[in-house]
Nucleic acid binder design. Structure first.
Lengths: 142, 142
DNA sequence: ATAGCTGCAAACTATTTGCAATCCC
DNA sequence: GGGATTGCAAATAGTTTGCAGCTAT
């Protein structure tokens, strides 16, 4: 699904929920659509500031929360100290750099379905966390 | 491996690294050996306080860091707002309650080995995160 | 004896919240 | 116009650190 279409869905979802389409909101969502490393709130804030220098960090926090409630983005179980967000809401796995914390989506499919009940837990879904060192951090090694 | 044996290994590892065997250290490690839900630092602190009411939260933070460096416990990629620790250092998977954040180990084995290189990442290992609702939270639902 | 630990309090970092001004519909 | 949204600043929550006194070896 391309960016334009996702942006359209976003506008639609806002209208449907009676949320206003503010430039800040659009900018935050656009950053998430563009970036592939699952940015932290701070990362998003820095990107948005390039376009809207007056934006506030608190607004970015509030916006990602709203987007999450709309089901347009997801909080990624995280590594390191900050929460990271992901605009890819389809089922997929994560490749995590143990050095810098960058997280990328992994598309290949593991052909496995978990039992619906494990140790009394009612199981919803699962995700694979693959740990390694990203190319950027590998380059820094020498 | 039973608790006694692990405690012995812990004592041994401390001696080997020139670390002192303090009651606080032992107490923190014991809590981690006893609990199966991968407690937060705060959780550990509250347990230890029952035995040593004067213990400080800062000490617990320092102790888990030390234990992690010794390779005796692991930081668990977390859900919610606090880091959680795990005294099971063997390869295993995690069952995470999306309501309360409790994390349990899952012993069954998924017969799969990841490629050593994915998207340029040098892959070390992986872990499966299985999301669901724990029995305690299910009971609270009605 | 002494290097390492601990408790306390203060500092820091990530995140949330109250509120008055402002902006979309 | 009017309620939703924003920016600011202050408040919280989780974690780390400096330091003086205490303790295991």
């Amino acid at each position: 699904m391309d960016r334009k279409k996702k942006l359209g869905q976003f506008i639609e979802a806002c209208r449907h929920s009676g949320l206003k389409i503010t430039p800040q909101r659009v900018a935050v969502y656009e950053v998430l659509l563009t970036r592939e490393d699952h940015p932290t709130v701070e990362d998003i804030y820095n990107e948005v500031k390039k376009k809207y220098p007056f934006v506030s960090l608190a607004t970015v926090y509030r916006t990602v929360e709203t987007l999450e409630e709309l089901g347009l983005i997801r909080k990624v179980a995280y590594w390191g100290s900050s929460v990271r967000y992901d605009a890819n809401t389809s089922d997929h796995h994560h490749l995590i750099c143990v050095q810098c914390g960058a997280i990328r989506d992994v598309e290949f499919c593991l052909d496995w379905t978990p039992p619906t009940n494990i140790q009394g837990y009612r199981v919803h879904k699962y995700s694979l966390h693959i740990y390694g060192v990203c190319p950027v951090c590998q380059a820094k090694e020498n």
